[in-house]
Design a binder for these strands. Structure first.
Lengths: 358, 358
DNA sequence: ACGGTCAGCTAAACCGGTTTGCTAAACCGC
DNA sequence: GCGGTTTAGCAAACCGGTTTAGCTGACCGT
């Protein structure tokens, strides 16, 4: 069997044009080094031969891949179906495209994130959901590839982009407090796997702190018993709410740490005969696109998700090693509360604290 | 300023181990060609030197990138935030990971899809939303890279995976007909850009045909005036419904060609004071994850989105040129109707056809 | 006529691996 | 102790580009 017609290489073009390989390369990359007509002659021959430089060879020679990696501890299947990640990636993609960079997802390969990192050929990495002290981040740091951590506090001299989680959470809880709520259920995000060091713990802790400060103002505490965790998905939210309910929790308001979980909780509550916001108020976190389309529309803490992606790219580029120069910085983006339809005054008579039997 | 410490290369390892570069390569790729202790010695030295083979160099030498490309005419920002694409990509990703392949998105780069294709270094391509006769598909065909088209009829000897769009649409419309509906609004998907040859036209046409067959059974036609199109997003759905309403359409049921648009329409209807399904029934298409979480839950046509992604990978791999051998085939996957809460009997008295003044 | 410049191009090294002969030594049966 | 087969490993070519150093000849002023 005959080998499929080999693709045209730079040597073929050079030969056909009667010039050196270098000339062909120049014709495309630094045309000013050649005379105008040589350039156009080479280009013509190249197109007529349907020549397209092999991207891989080019990457090797230039030692640049023109690609940014998005590193996450979750599998691609969860990434792609999670609106939060979707919007974040969209932000990264927009900024990357503007800079002429492609993006690649680096996520556990056959269970190993380390292996995935080794295998990835990128000029820079955006780590999301991973602490700056995570082993894989260490691996990257040693490898010398520029990186930025997102949603996690960066090391002093390293770039990072964060959001005011605590402040946002505080706003959310205060809103409920002002509506007269006193019995809360907190639905938290649990790390994607049992592996240690996975970061959502960081944001979970910060948001919890915000909730606590707000409710403390009216003398309410948020004991572990009023908190339940699960994966940040709708199923996770359903499951979390059901578990809490089964365990006897009877909140008038739920503070969910992600919109997906809030939506799940809303559904689970509905199935249990509760109306939202009549019987139960729910506030989410993230302000994902769909939050406006739920029924009732979700009251939630807005964070600039896409913008985080764009900033991450900007910081990476500003670091110098990928494009131009600049010092590395850290960003803290603001959050704000968006009040929609899933929250209302607490039901009458719910203000007194329930005697929990102690 | 000193150059950052160069990463360890195969030559460094070879030198340190006192063997040839070839031996080091063998130690990792074909250890059986070396004696066991040489292998372990080399491996030890390699780890101690923190050696990791450069993926790019490896790709060049092997002329394999171990990467699959997902080709779409839309920008990455829409891809990542569109649940349909998300689920499809998740399917691709799952199957690709199982085969040890990475995935890369190929989407218009600075407006040019052609340029994006040239730039991409992949072993195979999955084209979604692009007709088999699309210019970029032709470009790929000429380049000799194996590919499969999804959601579009493939050329005779080329692999493709499709879904029974017409059948699904028929089921959806028949369901409404059986509920007594006679006044319909069809919300169709419009090609992402003005560029010609963009495929959704294909699925739009098939679904429309299905709708028509079903309603024809009760003597209803679906003239252009009862159809409105827009981008397949929630905003698109809102906008489409509003436009139709403003133009005087007063349907009792809407047939939306995508869940996102259905959700948008549901919202727009709500804002106009219509209750779903009391005043208006809505059925979507796709059965995206969120369809179960809307309020009311969306009645829709289920199609195996993730499965399409997996099949696409399977066909690509079966084609031989990427992994093993096999003939190329085409798949037609089934669709089915999932009745949930967004559809109900038509309001009383709506059966008679409205006199539209002609 | 001559040294100096400069524009235009080339040869060759290089990027960091893989792969293809090929050789030298060890092993084999007899 | 000898021809023949393995086994273990090496040198060099190769993948397809980029990049550096250097060459050549045209043009210039004097």
């Amino acid at each position: 069997m005959e080998q499929a017609t080999r693709r045209t290489t730079i040597a073929d073009v050079a030969r056909a044009a009667g010039v050196s390989k270098a000339a062909v390369s120049f014709a495309f990359n630094t045309p000013e080094r050649l005379s105008v007509d040589t350039v156009s002659r080479i280009r013509e021959i190249a197109t007529s031969l349907d020549y397209r430089p092999d991207p891989v060879a080019r990457m090797l020679a230039q030692r640049r891949t023109w690609t940014l990696g998005i590193l996450t501890p979750q599998g691609l299947d969860v990434i792609f179906t999670n609106p939060y990640f979707g919007e974040f990636s969209a932000g990264v993609a927009t900024a990357a495209e503007a800079a002429g960079l492609a993006i690649q997802f680096i996520s556990p390969l056959h269970g190993s994130l380390t292996r995935a990192v080794d295998r990835a050929s990128v000029d820079g990495i955006i780590a999301i959901g991973l602490g700056a002290d995570h082993p894989e981040v260490g691996q990257i740091r040693r490898s010398g590839i520029p990186f930025v951590v997102v949603d996690s506090t960066a090391m002093p001299d390293e770039p990072g982009v964060e959001v005011d989680d605590e402040g946002g959470a505080l706003l959310a809880a205060r809103h409920l407090v002002e509506l007269g709520h006193r019995r809360f259920l907190v639905i938290g995000i649990e790390p994607p796997s049992a592996a240690a060091g996975l970061e959502p713990a960081g944001v979970t802790a910060k948001r919890l702190a915000g909730y606590r400060t707000a409710v403390a103002a009216v003398g309410v505490e948020l004991p572990e018993s009023e908190m339940v965790v699960g994966p940040a998905s709708m199923e996770g939210g359903i499951d979390a709410f059901r578990r809490a309910w089964a365990a006897g929790a009877r909140p008038t308001a739920v503070l969910a740490m992600s919109d997906a979980m809030a939506i799940g909780a809303m559904r689970a509550a509905g199935e249990l005969g509760l109306t939202v916001p009549g019987d139960l108020s729910i506030v989410g976190f993230d302000d994902v696109d769909v939050a406006q389309y739920t029924n009732p529309p979700l009251t939630t803490v807005h964070q600039p998700i896409r913008r985080k992606g764009e900033e991450a790219v900007r910081l990476l580029l500003a670091g110098g090693r990928i494009r131009d120069e600049g010092p590395s910085e850290q960003q803290l983006l603001a959050t704000r509360l968006v009040v929609r339809g899933s929250t209302a005054r607490a039901p009458r008579g719910s203000e007194e604290v329930v005697d929990d039997g102690r």
